[in-house]
Amino acid sequence: MLDWVGYVAFGAALGTLGGLFGIGGGLIAIPALGLLFGLDQQLAQGTALVMVVPNVLLALWRYHQRNRIDHRHAVALGIAGLVCAWLGSLWAVGLDGAVMRKGFIGFLLFLVLTNLVRMFGHQTPPSQALKHGWPWLAALGGLAGLAGGLFGVGGAVVATPVLTAVFGASQVVAQGLSLALAAPSTGITLVTYALHGHVNWPMGLAMAVGGLLSISWGVKLAYALPERVLRAAFCGFLLLCALMLAMKV
């Protein structure tokens, strides 16, 4: 019982972060599950997805309530992300766990670098309309979905910086669209991991309960923070996750 309560509390903390950054909480859940609970990389990713899937769906609804998400953009991102996430997850379940962990660290450090360039480089004002249409959104969805399926994070962390830097979206609009991409891709990735036995269901379900109780607070905070502060916090969050995983290597 105490373990279950602890998992719920852990999921609540991750849910707040998932709502804040529009990522579902998986990025920090995966290294934490490996470092604190000794799960191997694939099992950590699969277990985290049990929490991430409902978190993403609730966060998507909350973002849509505050700033309506264009369904045409969401469909282009979501369909391409779904197909490529399935392919990425099939690839992931056959890889060595140590190789996966090192690849995940490199993936996180790449995201940190990308976000630092965005923060300190030339900033173009966000616009109401995206600069590029559905063919480019589908390409982004495919790339982000592949990364999400491979690393169990839903692809939102890839899509968000690209949507702001290349497509001209504001941070909160980009996070909302990224959640629309992540919703179907995390679902198919969870199914793949589960079919290959890479899910601890009791732990994941308890974390999901905690995440659902707290994610709305994170979304509310995301809309209250200044854009630059939100980007800086996201960059620091990614670096922390990379450091946590490096301690496990």
Rank of each mutant, 00 (worst) to 15 (best):
G34R: 11
G78V: 05
W4K: 10
M119T: 01
L225M: 14
Q42Y: 08
I215M: 11
W201G: 09
M119V: 01
A246G: 03
L111W: 00
H71Q: 12
H73W: 09
W86V: 05
E227P: 05
G154W: 01
G218V: 03
Y63R: 07
G210T: 03
P226Q: 02
C84K: 00
M203D: 07
A92I: 02
I215T: 13
W91N: 14
Q175E: 05
L82Y: 06
G46E: 05
A144V: 09
M119N: 07
I188Y: 12
D70G: 07
G103W: 04
W201K: 12
R68V: 13
A144W: 03
F120H: 13
A144E: 09
A48N: 01
A9Q: 01
V209P: 11
V75D: 05
G81E: 08
G133T: 00
T16D: 01
L181H: 09
E227Q: 11
Q123Y: 13
I30V: 15
L2K: 14
P184G: 11
V249A: 12
L95V: 08
L95D: 00
Q42F: 05
R228K: 13
V191P: 02
A32P: 00
L143P: 11
V112Y: 02
Q45A: 14
Q128K: 15
L82V: 04
W217C: 11
M244P: 04
V162H: 08
D40M: 09
H122Q: 13
G6H: 09
S178T: 09
S178D: 06
A138Q: 15
A182K: 07
I188D: 07
C235Q: 06
A232N: 05
P202F: 01
L195D: 01
V219H: 06
N200C: 05
L111D: 01
G18W: 04
A98M: 10
